[in-house]
Design a protein around this nucleic acid. Structure first.
Lengths: 138, 138
DNA sequence: CATTTACCCTACATTTTTTATAGAGTTTAT
DNA sequence: ATAAACTCTATAAAAAATGTAGGGTAAATG
């Protein structure tokens, strides 16, 4: 399951995607629309900005806006950013790899091998869907 | 990511699958093989038994054994049992459905619609792989 | 039929992660 | 100059995951 952080990120991205005609959107507007705490949402938007998905502008008339084309924002990118690994275990994670302490020989672990396949298939699913798919259905 | 509970369940099922020739396997043997606390593992095996995947026998010479054919134990079944929903949000879960508090109209939520598709594809992946796939690769 | 072996059950404790909250500081547009 | 809005660090409450403790119950063997 996704954390609330990731869910909120998708909400925010959807909102920003729907308001691409205006230059910027206030944190407060997004927060009110979805009943999210202003400060909590701030952290999330900041992470999306650091990842190059959003841009921001300070001062009066400022706010956040979408930099990327919605088709170039796959679900996998957002999930990895806020929730961490797509993989089902650390020993099959691409970006957050860690061996299992109980595993004597990873090369002989059937679970490891099957979960690598699962990871690739899931990654495929989550990379082939993007923010544009969400926006198309709103 | 899978919880340790679910990971241990897969370990135990793998062990039991590999020792199908003997009548029963002791909790202790599995616990030692993977460095799991006896009591913690006991709870997990109990759940697998309640779900009809394992059988058990009490008394001297007792222990656990696999009831199902490994091909009839899909990953999805084990994950749902120990970890809960496969879906990425409660609002798209088949077995654990709950609406989002912030959602005014689910029928108009693009995220909901996309995540339903994602759920179906993930479920497909996790149902098409089973314990037998793990055993084949050990 | 006693004894050993192992399963069954409940409750609690610890640790980690998630979900926020608070408040001060910095930048920028008007 | 001033107000509006972003940035950063630290802290705290709540929830979930992980693990412990200990007694009770059932069954196989001799």
């Amino acid at each position: 399951m996704l954390s609330k952080k990731t869910k909120y990120a998708f909400h925010a991205l959807t909102y920003l995607g729907k308001h691409r005609d205006q230059k910027t959107v206030l944190i407060q507007d997004i927060a009110e629309e979805y009943g999210i705490s202003h400060k909590f949402l701030e952290n999330i938007l900041l992470e999306l900005k650091k990842a190059g998905i959003l841009g921001s502008k300070k001062g009066k008339g400022g706010g956040y806006y979408l930099i990327k084309d919605p088709a170039d924002v796959p679900l996998s990118k957002v999930i990895r950013l806020l929730d961490g690994p797509i993989a089902l275990l650390p020993c099959v994670s691409i970006n957050y790899y860690e061996p299992c302490v109980e595993c004597k020989d990873e090369a002989k672990c059937g679970l490891n091998k099957v979960l690598i396949q699962v990871r690739d298939e899931m990654l495929n699913v989550l990379t082939n869907k993007s923010l544009s798919d969400i926006l198309d259905k709103e």
